[in-house]
Design a protein around this nucleic acid. Structure first.
Lengths: 136, 136
DNA sequence: GGTTGACCCTCCTGTTACTGGAGGCTTTAT
DNA sequence: ATAAAGCCTCCAGTAACAGGAGGGTCAACC
């Protein structure tokens, strides 16, 4: 049985975060010492690690909860997991597209800006006028 | 002078958002009617539009405040604006890289998953094990 | 003149996923 | 014996709004 600090070291999750996951019932502590200290076993640590990686993939806490229950349920069909994953993937793709467009436009503006002492600035001009045409 | 609703239509910002910008002092209402209704003139609408576009570029409210004050200050050097823009650009680039990696990895996992009735699922396996090697 | 319906206001709560801190035990090391 | 580190709970705050309650206002229509 590990203290919350040990679990933190093993999973690379901050202590505060582990406590939070316990609080919201995502990954509950295995037990408590008589003094009330949280205890975690290997299984709990594994789940914490699972959540950590899923979070890195931009899965929300609620989605993690769902994935975790599928993970816990030994007989679940992989179809269910794949479905969640694919819809998340579509979302990521959209974010990616938006971010790419945005970066390109901003890059264009920065390139056009002389960045000197003169007050004329294409960036501010663009912001005050309207949408930007990116030039290649 | 426009009501908040008219300003909303002109700028495509929700009424709630415009009120919020007033509340936090980002773009204050030009005045009020005797009944307490917010009023906006062309200049305010222009500022609202400015903020809207800057927000689309992922500038935070505080950054917008900064840009807006540069925008207001007629004599500011374009260097200042460019500096802010470039650091924002670097941040965007990093987000983009992370998101790209993430998407690729998740894609790899989804491809490996049969998505049928069987419980074996590479996605869950990967999450429970550790980092993923994306295959081309 | 009354009434509907569309606006407007303020204030409060909730969202996401934590993070920081106060105040106060417990355990471990010296 | 004491100091440091670690643990606990509870409270507040973060970003940028969105939703809704409760209530005032304005223009039009009958």
């Amino acid at each position: 049985m590990l203290t919350i600090n040990d679990a933190s070291k093993r999973t690379n999750l901050p202590v505060k975060t582990i406590r939070y996951y316990d609080e919201v019932g995502l990954v509950s502590a295995t037990g408590r010492t008589p003094a009330g200290y949280r205890l975690y076993d290997d299984r709990s640590c594994q789940k914490l690690g699972f959540v950590q990686r899923a979070r890195q993939f931009n899965f929300s806490i609620e989605e993690c909860r769902e994935l975790l229950s599928l993970y816990e349920d030994h007989g679940r069909p992989s179809r269910d997991v794949k479905k969640i994953t694919l819809s998340k993937l579509a979302l990521l793709q959209k974010q990616l597209d938006d971010l790419t467009t945005l970066t390109l436009e901003l890059q264009t503006l920065a390139n056009q800006c002389t960045g000197d002492d003169r007050p004329d600035c294409p960036i501010l001009n663009a912001f005050s006028a309207g949408p930007i045409d990116a030039e290649p």
